[in-house]
């Protein structure tokens, strides 16, 4: 039950305002997104107004208030990746999946997110499929990434 898991997460970090972001991150880690119900539970559990918690959750891009797909694809848009064609990779993947980043496919298989630098700049352009880093991706070969379906690194 979600109550138990959210409670466990809050207990782990402490019932304090300063735990808010870590709690939200763990809720997302567990459920792949933060539902309205769970957001309310976090607010209640930490003794914070809903408007405050919603404000924090919507500010930080790593947190998602909408459901996400099974596999999360992140095309790095850092400068090094940009000068080596990251924009083209993104457009190609958007074409393949028929979505615009950030966005999720209708069947909830894939979510594409934009990330501003994962710190692997020497291997630009980088695409993350799930936890796996794909270095030196070529735009016209980007669609091959969709076959791997996010193996754990």
């Amino acid at each position: 039950m979600s109550n138990v898991e959210v409670d466990r997460i809050i207990d782990r970090h402490g019932r304090d305002r300063s735990s808010l972001i870590a709690v939200l991150q763990d809720v997302q880690e567990h459920y792949n997104w933060i539902s309205e119900e769970n957001l309310g539970l976090v607010a209640e559990g930490l003794g914070l107004p809903l408007s405050e918690v919603y404000g924090v959750a919507s500010f930080y891009r790593a947190l998602s208030l909408v459901p996400r797909g099974k596999t999360i694809i992140k095309v790095c848009q850092g400068t090094a990746c940009h000068v080596r064609g990251a924009q083209l990779i993104q457009e190609e993947l958007e074409r393949q999946l028929d979505i615009k980043a950030p966005g999720t496919t209708a069947d909830f298989e894939y979510t594409m997110e934009i990330v501003n630098c994962v710190g692997a700049c020497a291997m630009a352009p980088v695409v993350l499929v799930g936890d796996k880093y794909h270095p030196g991706v070529k735009p016209h070969l980007a669609k091959k990434l969709l076959v791997t379906k996010g193996e754990k690194a």
Binding site: R17, S18, I21, A22, F59, Y60, R61, V115, N116
Partner: peptide
């Protein structure tokens, strides 16, 4: 250890501190 939430502005020291406190950056 505090993990960031995907916000470049939190590299700015006063925003970083607000983030540690549990606020928006």
């Amino acid at each position: 250890i505090n993990r960031g939430g995907g916000a470049f502005v939190c590299g700015e020291s006063s925003a970083l501190m607000r983030s540690i406190e549990g606020y928006i950056g």
